[in-house]
Design a protein around this nucleic acid. Structure first.
Length: 241
DNA sequence: AGCACA
C-alpha cells in the first residue's frame, strides 16, 4: 500500500498548496519568505504564486521528495505567516516539474482565459504583456493603488526558519553590559573555539565561531540558557549563513 | 474562497 494519509481529503503529493496568505505581500517577497520557511523540510524545486483574482493569497511549493511535503504540512499548519495563519494541504494534482522528472508530463492545452464572447483578444494580449513587465500593473481589477507598494505595508515580519546546524552560534538575550571578553571566557572552555564577534550597534547579541559544527553544538548544549545575570538567560541558535 | 504550471 502507498503512504497513509489519514485525515486528509487529498492524496500525498510532492507539492503543497497553501492558502489564507496575506494578499498584501508582493510575489517576489512572498516566494522568498516561503523558501525561508519551507527549505528546512527538504529541497524545493519550485515555488509558484500568482496575483490573478482567482489565485491571489495562494501558493504552491514543490518539493523534490513527497516526504518533505508531508513534514511541512505537519510542522507548519496554521503557522503565522505575514500575520495570517497559513492553511496547507497537498496539491490536488501533480506539478508539471515533477511530471517532467517522471517522464509523465503531457503539455495541457492552453487554458482559455474567460473567453469574453467574441470580444477583442488584442486588448487581452496587451494586458498580459503589461502584467509581465510592470509590477505596479493593476488594470484588470480597478485603479486602486497597490497597498503593497507602500513601504510600511510591505514591511511585514518574515518568520524565520531555524538555521541548519553549522559552526557559528548566534547568541541572544545578553545583558547590555556584556563584553566580548566575558563571552570568550565562557565559550573558550569548549574545544574548537575560534572567536567571539559582537556588533556595537546591536547590543544583546553575539556570534561565536568554532572549528566545526560538532564543536559548536557541544558549546550550545553546555551554555544554552546560561545566565550572566539572573534576568538574562542566553538563547543560543545556529547562525544564519 | 479561490488548486497552477509566467
Amino acid at each position: 500500500m502507498a503512504e497513509m494519509n489519514v485525515g486528509s481529503e487529498v492524496p500525498v503529493n510532492n507539492t503543497i498548496y497553501i492558502n489564507n496568505i496575506n494578499e498584501k505581500i508582493k510575489l517576489d517577497e512572498l516566494k522568498k519568505s516561503l523558501h525561508a520557511i519551507f527549505s528546512q523540510f527538504g529541497n524545493i524545486l519550485e515555488i509558484l504564486a500568482f496575483k490573478t483574482l482567482k489565485h491571489k493569497g495562494q501558493a504552491w511549493v514543490v518539493f523534490e521528495d513527497a516526504s518533505s511535503a508531508s513534514r511541512a504540512i505537519q510542522k507548519m499548519q496554521n503557522f503565522p505567516f505575514h500575520d495570517k495563519p497559513m492553511r496547507i494541504q497537498y496539491a490536488r494534482t501533480k506539478s508539471d516539474i515533477i511530471a517532467k522528472k517522471d517522464g509523465t508530463f503531457v503539455p495541457r492545452e492552453k487554458k482559455k482565459r474567460h473567453e469574453e464572447k467574441g470580444k477583442k483578444r488584442k486588448e487581452h494580449d496587451a494586458n498580459q504583456a503589461a502584467m509581465g513587465l510592470n509590477p505596479a500593473y493593476n488594470g484588470a481589477y480597478g485603479a486602486a493603488p497597490q497597498l503593497s507598494q507602500i513601504p510600511y505595508m510591505a514591511k511585514s515580519a518574515v518568520p524565520e526558519a531555524p538555521a541548519p546546524p553549522n559552526s557559528i552560534l548566534f547568541i541572544e538575550n545578553l545583558p547590555h553590559q556584556t563584553t566580548p571578553m566575558m563571552l570568550q571566557m565562557l565559550f573558550c572552555q569548549y574545544p574548537g573555539f575560534k572567536e567571539v564577534r559582537m556588533v556595537e550597534v546591536r547590543p544583546g547579541i553575539a556570534f561565536v565561531e568554532y572549528e566545526n559544527e560538532a564543536q559548536s553544538t557541544q558549546a550550545m548544549i553546555g551554555l544554552q540558557g546560561f545566565k550572566i545575570v539572573p534576568e538574562n538567560p542566553m538563547s543560543i541558535t545556529y547562525a544564519k549563513k
